[in-house]
């Protein structure tokens, strides 16, 4: 299942092969293999329960897979711990963003990795200046660094969480429904940010239920259903209707709102 939109030969930054995971009797993930390259924007789509979250949680070290392996920039792991995942450059921005609302922008960007002087005193100046340059590099506009995270807009908060992910050394940024519950303008900002990340050479995996958003920014679309990766598509070779059919496992009747189940080898 090699993506046809990647023609050049290069080493993937993240490569997973044959990952499987079950919870009791439920096989949440079946033999999933996927290569992700620097600068690539990959959308992971699928209905609820398709296995997207299980896959993401294995990558971020929350779940331990039953079988399969993960290799990050050549290093092979049977499973990851959250710290290993973070240290190897996989950072996940969950839907709740995990911001400290009562703290200002630099505090959030540097949470957990504050620079110190003399090994003790926090270097606030460095935090502020590095935050400023990071935000401008990512083209994230936050008017005042002294604002607490709690007063920022949804788009700014997303930007702040992404900036932190990158500051934590992230090379593969996983975004869990970054555009959920956002206004039109904020959604636009977030999609622009995702495109920007790709141009800066970061690999982005983003989960979304909104195919319009997926098609406006992703180069590659991976469809999951019933724990399997059923399609790995190049965005320009497909269209929302086709992807929708794959997600649902149903074919939409031409010109009618009704749908019928397509029998597939399941």
């Amino acid at each position: 299942m090699e993506p046809d939109c990647k023609t050049e030969v290069r080493r993937p930054i993240l490569s997973i092969s044959g990952l499987g995971k079950s919870f009791g009797n439920i096989q949440a993930l079946k033999d999933v293999s996927l290569d992700i390259y620097d600068g690539e924007i990959l959308a992971l789509v699928g209905d609820n329960g398709a296995g997207k979250s299980t896959l993401i949680k294995i990558l971020s070290g929350v779940f331990r897979p039953d079988y399969g392996q993960i290799s990050i920039a050549g290093r092979v792991f049977r499973h990851l711990t959250p710290i290993q995942s973070l240290k190897n450059g996989i950072t996940t921005v969950y839907q709740d963003l995990a911001l400290v609302d009562c703290r200002d922008v630099p505090c959030n960007v540097f949470l957990g990795r504050e620079p110190t002087r003399a090994g003790f005193f926090i270097d606030k100046k460095r935090m502020a200046s590095e935050t400023e340059s990071l935000l401008s590099k990512l083209n994230i506009s936050i008017p005042s660094l002294a604002s607490n995270a709690g007063v920022l807009s949804g788009g700014q908060r997303q930007g702040l969480a992404v900036a932190r992910a990158i500051n934590q050394g992230g090379r593969v940024i996983i975004l869990d429904e970054p555009t959920a519950a956002m206004g039109v303008r904020e959604t636009e900002q977030v999609l622009e940010l995702i495109g920007n990340l790709g141009r800066q050479g970061y690999a982005v995996i983003f989960i979304s239920h909104n195919l319009h958003h997926v098609f406006s920014v992703a180069e590659r679309i991976c469809v999951m259903r019933n724990g399997e990766l059923i399609a790995d598509l190049c965005a320009r070779d497909t269209d929302p209707d086709q992807v929708m059919e794959m997600i649902a496992g149903v074919r939409q009747k031409q010109g009618m709102g009704r749908t019928e189940v397509v029998n597939e080898a399941l």
Partner: peptide, 23 residues
């Protein structure tokens, strides 16, 4: 001025965020 103070504030603000940041 110290990590302990910063993390004290973060613990009160969003403990889960601090944990996910590897602290």
């Amino acid at each position: 001025w110290t990590k302990l103070g910063y993390y004290s504030t973060a613990l009160g603000g969003n403990e889960e965020a601090l944990r996910r940041s590897g602290v």
